[in-house]
């Protein structure tokens, strides 16, 4: 596998990570498992965001829009048209990719800050549009409820979510180790030089966007079935965006394991805070930690771990 430059320690680490995730139900109770299910979905959203924004530096403030399309597509197909989930989820992924492309692709041609603004405006547009357009399909502000469940019980739900997350993470990790991953990263450092190296940056960004949208749609669709009901506020909301971005930042942008660590850290911290702060004010604690960490080390926990590891190696040598 010269393409990917795989080393033995990669395989060992991946095997250990997969084993840890799959053995989890033997170690923790159902309550914790339910928290972990949410963490797995958030991790997938975060990986999706990071493939586009963490690498290329084009900040997507509209990721909830993509996740929401995935969720609404499968919701409408299963509940309004009676299409089985085996068909509705793949369709949801395709619709997310197509919808994202039509609406956001033109925006990739404009400069970074403007892209961020357009994506934010698209999310706000959906928040206002979904409740009023075709309420017979979208269910208006009340959304769609009683989506068919894919699994029963916390344990099965966990295996589904963790399995999906591992697959997504492995896929993204492999993809980012190819030359394409290097090129995407290079765009984030200096887009003009990538163009000056003879590469079509628009095509590269579009591809990153498609992959990102595909993962967002997939995770969004499965998440909708896990939740069982969807509303505009629970998807097209700036708080969702905040959770995704902060998970990436805390863990470390530009890595695969970083967003996963960030998502688990975030979800468990929020869970522990729940008894003291039941509502969104929990984000105060969370946001403050994220902001201080970001100001101290913009590359997140992963970079801090790296520094410690290399220091320890250095002192041994």
């Amino acid at each position: 596998m010269r393409t990917l430059d795989l080393r033995p320690h990669h395989l060992v680490l991946w095997a250990a990570f997969i084993a840890l995730m799959l053995l989890m139900p033997l170690m923790v109770g159902n309550g914790t498992l339910r928290t972990m299910i949410f963490a797995c979905y958030l991790a997938m959203f975060a990986i999706s965001w990071d493939i586009l924004s963490g690498r290329t530096g084009y900040l997507s403030f509209g990721h909830p829009f993509l996740i929401g399309i995935g969720a609404y597509t499968t919701g409408i197909l299963t509940r309004r048209y009676g299409i089985p989930v085996e068909a509705s989820i793949p369709i949801a992924v395709l619709v997310t990719m197509a919808g994202g492309l039509i609406i956001l692709l033109p925006a990739l041609r404009i400069k970074g800050s403007y892209f961020a603004l357009v994506t934010l405006a698209v999310m706000e547009l959906m928040l206002q549009l979904v409740p009023v357009i075709r309420p017979d399909l979208t269910g208006g502000t009340r959304g769609i409820s009683r989506l068919p469940a894919l699994t029963r019980g916390a344990e099965n739900g966990y295996y589904l979510a963790a399995g999906l997350m591992l697959a997504v993470a492995l896929f993204a990790w492999l993809l980012m180790r190819t030359r394409l991953g290097t090129a995407l990263w290079a765009i984030g450092m200096n887009e003009e030089s990538v163009r000056g190296s003879g590469l079509s940056t628009t095509r590269l960004k579009s591809f990153a966007f498609l992959v990102s949208a595909g993962i967002a749609g997939l995770a969004g669709a499965f998440y909708a079935h896990y939740l069982g009901s969807i509303t505009p506020r629970s998807f097209f909301d700036i708080n969702i965006l905040f959770q995704i971005i902060v998970a990436v930042l805390i863990g470390g942008a530009g890595t695969i394991i970083g967003p996963i660590i960030g998502a688990f850290f975030m979800v468990f911290l929020l869970e522990w805070l729940r008894p003291y702060m039941p509502g969104t004010e929990r984000f105060f604690v969370y946001g403050s930690i994220a902001l201080v960490l970001y100001m101290y080390q913009p590359k997140g926990i992963m970079a801090i771990v790296d520094t410690i590891v290399s220091k320890m190696k250095g002192s041994r040598a």
Binding site: T178, A183, A186, S193, G196
Partner: peptide
């Protein structure tokens, strides 16, 4: 000069060597 600051010398040159084809970038080895 406009280098890719966080890439190695080797990877900087690698970006220059890449063909402008997504397929080759994913499946081809450097």
């Amino acid at each position: 000069p406009r280098p890719f600051a966080e890439l190695s010398v080797r990877e900087n040159i690698r970006v220059g060597l890449m063909p402008d084809s997504l397929r080759a970038m994913i499946f081809g080895a450097p």
